[in-house]
């Protein structure tokens, strides 16, 4: 029985998800490829966004992939860490902003 839920080797098998549904798999990977092409944003900027999102959703495969991708693109560790703080700030802020709801409720119910 597998001892861990995540295996780094599985990242390389990502493409195999198409084996069980070729049509949707192909559409997904085509979409994925197009998303990361340079457009209004550069490929470099998209790589940094992907890295930040990867940390937000805490996907170890994505963190591995987009740290490597960033290094290949010449993205510095300072830029990577700043991107992570943006992710952390939004994530932390998302919790905290719900405090307004808590305050509203307390103000309504409490004497």
């Amino acid at each position: 029985m597998q001892k861990t839920y995540y295996d780094p080797a599985d990242l390389k098998k990502f493409g195999k998800i198409s084996d069980w549904n070729e049509a949707l798999g192909a559409k997904f990977f085509d979409y994925y490829g197009k998303v990361f092409e340079a457009g209004a944003l550069t490929e470099r900027e998209k790589s940094l966004i992907a890295l930040a999102v990867a940390h937000t959703i805490q996907c170890p495969y994505c963190i591995d992939a987009y740290t490597g991708d960033g290094l290949q693109r010449g993205i510095t560790k300072e830029e990577m860490m700043e991107a992570l703080h943006v992710a952390a700030a939004i994530r932390g802020g998302a919790s905290l902003v719900h405090g307004v709801q808590m305050m509203n409720k307390v103000n309504k119910l409490d004497m």
């Binding site: 490929e43 470099r44 991708d69 290949q72």
Partner: peptide
């Protein structure tokens, strides 16, 4: 440009633009 670690270089044209 040589990568400064155990990774491959990215697209030459994109790197040239950034440099």
């Amino acid at each position: 440009y040589n990568p400064s670690g155990a990774f491959l270089p990215s697209n030459q044209k994109s790197l040239e633009k950034d440099f």
